[in-house]
Design a protein around this nucleic acid. Structure first.
Length: 468
DNA sequence: TGAAATGTTGGGGCG
DNA sequence: ACGCCCCAACATTTC
């Protein structure tokens, strides 16, 4: 094959890229192409933060390509049309791309396969979702057996190295990579690109991975890898992540260390589990997986929804988390569960509202994982938390932000509130509220809902009853 | 990857 | 010394 296209979608990396490798193996000239798809860019499930992260990632990728003698071609339009045009412009014989398992991508790729030679390669997950099924050929719907099967499969091996040289790209029109007002505010900055991803995974596996089992739930510490944005756009391959975990496992000396590595690997498996769920049950995008939980009487409450989105619910942990999300494009996993529980169970607002908002805000917003997480918390999902599992935002704060550093960092109004009252500031005596410059109701909101009442209300609602 | 309600146990205070 | 009560601490059940 003389000329091929490496169609980049969510694999913005040169390291361990099976699509790129295959293109290089089969063709002498490889054109790295990214298509700005207006349908995706203007989707209700995309926001400026992730777009900025994508554009920054494309810039990083372009400069890596240029260092190796290649360059990125950027075009805009409906992918089949863009590709057809390119095929008219020059003699292209094949398209190589990493398979994307989301419903929109599958439909798009099927259409293209009918008219153009598109070859899809694995990489978005370690094991393609078609590969993992029960003995009776049905897909798994429970995590534990899925993970057992996943772990029993032979691992495909070490990540592929990044190519040192790439063939030059012929004269072709290309758009400028858009610039976009970014999400960054100087707090946590997620620098886009695979170099940063590599840096982060090395740093994480030096130490924190071995303490991950204990640290991962602490919102006030940097105990997690914070690699999700990089996995989302493929600036890091899932295979390299799992491979690194495996290497770390070999060097782990204590059982605590091994547990740490293992629980991190488990999170990667959750990611693959939800990819598989969305692949086999695409209807979960629109409705509850569990048929008996499709009739919950959700409240239409724009005021409460806005308070939740803006971090003004009066529950410090919830507000800290939502502000972290809006400021950095990322939220701690424990905080995701707490805020999701609060929206669905305390406010009785449809999980789909939260799902959409998270997709708009998160750098790592992924249709499969995000949907899986929301349905898990709402109790409507495949292997979900039972409906009666309602998080108490005060207790969660006390357990997972015991010193209050997380709350104080994101909710400065509460800076001077002593830890005893930090997670329930409305219980402060008025004298103290004055002393610490935090009048509940003016400096910081009073709780928009009473948790004890809300808990009773949601239990009844899920059982098809009503409080009144 | 919950939390509240309810049940059980056992030490200590007290008459 | 003994029984009774209280209640913290822990365990179990329930949602």
């Amino acid at each position: 094959m003389k000329t091929a296209v490496w169609w980049i979608r969510r694999d913005l990396r040169l390291t361990d890229n099976q699509a790129l490798t295959e293109a290089l193996r089969q063709a002498g000239t490889v054109i790295p192409l990214f298509i700005l798809d207006p349908k995706l860019l203007s989707s209700d499930y995309v926001g400026p933060a992730r777009l900025a992260f994508l554009f920054e990632g494309l810039r990083a990728l372009d400069s890596s390509l240029r260092e190796r003698g290649s360059r990125l071609i950027l075009r805009e339009g409906d992918p089949p049309e863009v590709l057809t045009t390119l095929f008219r412009e020059m003699q292209v014989e094949g398209i190589f791309a990493e398979e994307d398992y989301s419903p929109y991508a599958r439909q798009r790729d099927e259409r293209i396969s009918l008219i153009l030679p598109l070859q899809l390669l694995p990489g978005a997950t370690i094991f393609p979702p078609q590969m993992l099924h029960k003995a009776n050929d049905e897909p798994y719907t429970v995590f534990t057996p899925f993970s057992r099967m996943w772990r029993s499969l032979p691992f495909s091996g070490a990540p592929l190295p990044s190519p040192r040289q790439l063939p030059s790209v012929p004269e072709l029109a290309s758009l400028e990579i858009p610039t976009q007002a970014t999400y960054s505010t100087g707090h946590t900055t997620f620098k886009a690109g695979e170099a940063e991803a590599q840096k982060r995974i090395s740093r994480f596996t030096e130490r924190n991975i071995f303490e991950y089992a204990n640290m991962r739930n602490r919102m006030d510490l940097e105990g997690t890898s914070q690699l999700s944005p990089y996995l989302r756009l493929g600036m890091l391959s899932a295979r390299q992540a799992a491979w690194t975990a495996r290497q770390a496992m070999e060097s782990a000396e204590t059982s605590t260390a091994r547990e740490g590595v293992d629980s991190w690997l488990n999170e990667l498996i959750w990611r693959e589990f939800y990819a598989s769920i969305l692949y086999h049950f695409p209807f979960v995008r629109n409705m509850a997986f569990k048929a008996d939980l499709r009739q919950i009487p959700w409240h239409d409450n724009p005021v409460a929804l806005a308070a939740w989105q803006n971090g003004l619910t009066g529950y410090p942990v919830v507000d800290a988390a939502m502000r972290q999300l809006r400021t950095t494009g990322w939220m701690h996993n424990r905080a995701r569960m707490i805020t999701a529980s609060f929206l669905t169970k305390d406010l009785l607002i449809d999980w789909r509202e939260g799902e959409r908002f998270f997709m708009q805000q998160l750098l790592d917003g992924d249709p499969a994982s995000n949907n899986g997480g929301w349905q898990w918390t709402a109790g409507t999902g495949t292997d979900a938390a039972p409906y009666f599992r309602v998080f108490n935002p005060i207790l969660q704060g006390q357990k997972f932000d015991p010193k209050g550093n997380y709350v104080r960092n994101w909710v400065p109004e509460l800076k001077k509130v002593p830890i005893k009252y930090l997670h329930a500031p409305w219980e402060m005596p008025l004298e103290m509220q004055k002393q610490v410059d935090c009048l509940v109701g003016s400096d910081y909101p009073a709780p928009i809902v009473d948790h004890a009442m809300a808990r009773k209300r949601v239990l009844l609602a899920y059982r098809g009853q009503s409080l009144d």
